[in-house]
Amino acid sequence: MLSDRSTATVRATLPAVGAAIGDIADLFYKKLFDAHPELLRDLFNRGNQASGDQRKALAGSIAAFATALVEHPGTRPDVMLNRIAHKHASLGVTPEQYEVVHTHLFAAIVDVLGDAVTPEVAAAWDEVYWLMANALISIEARLYAQQGVVAGDVWREWEVAARIEETEDVTTFHLRPEDGGDTPAFRPGQYVSVQVELADGARQIRQYSLSSAPGSRLRSITVKRVRGEETPEGEVSRHLHEHTRSGDRLRVSVPYGDLVLDHLDAPLLLASAGIGCTPMLSMLEYLAEEGHDRPVTVVHGDRSPADHALRAHHTRLTEKLPKAEPHFWYESPEAGHPAHRTGLVDLNGITVLPGTHAYLCGPLPFMRTIRTQLLDAGVRPADIHYEVFGPDLWLASA
Rank of each mutant, 00 (worst) to 15 (best):
M1Q: 14
S6A: 11
A12P: 01
L14H: 01
P15M: 09
A19W: 11
A20V: 10
I21S: 11
G22P: 03
Q49I: 14
Q54Y: 12
Q54R: 13
L58D: 04
L58F: 14
A66Y: 04
T67I: 05
G74M: 08
V79Y: 12
R83C: 14
L91R: 03
V93Y: 05
V93E: 08
Y98L: 11
E99W: 12
H102C: 12
A107Q: 13
I109A: 14
V110W: 00
V112Y: 12
V112G: 12
A116E: 13
V121I: 13
A122T: 00
A123F: 09
A123T: 06
W125C: 15
W125I: 13
D126M: 03
D126V: 04
A135D: 02
I139P: 00
A141D: 08
R142Y: 00
R142N: 00
L143K: 13
Q147P: 01
G148C: 02
G148Q: 06
V149E: 07
G152Y: 02
W155A: 05
E166D: 03
T167Q: 00
R176E: 11
R176G: 03
E178K: 13
F186V: 10
R187H: 06
G189W: 04
Q195P: 01
Q195Y: 06
V196W: 00
L198G: 09
G201N: 10
R203G: 07
I205A: 13
Q207P: 02
Q207L: 02
Q207W: 01
K224P: 06
G228M: 11
E229Y: 03
T231S: 06
T231W: 01
E233D: 08
S237R: 01
L240F: 05
H243A: 10
R251D: 09
S253K: 14
P255L: 11
L261G: 00
D262G: 11
H263T: 06
L264D: 07
G274H: 00
M283H: 05
M283W: 14
L284W: 11
Y286G: 05
R294W: 02
R294F: 07
H300D: 01
A309E: 01
A309M: 03
H313T: 02
E319P: 10
P326W: 03
E334P: 04
G349R: 09
P354N: 05
T356F: 14
T356R: 06
H357N: 05
L360W: 09
L364H: 01
M367F: 03
R368V: 10
I370F: 08
R371E: 15
R371N: 11
L374P: 15
L375Y: 10
A377R: 05
H385I: 04
Y386V: 12
G390F: 10
D392K: 03
A396T: 07
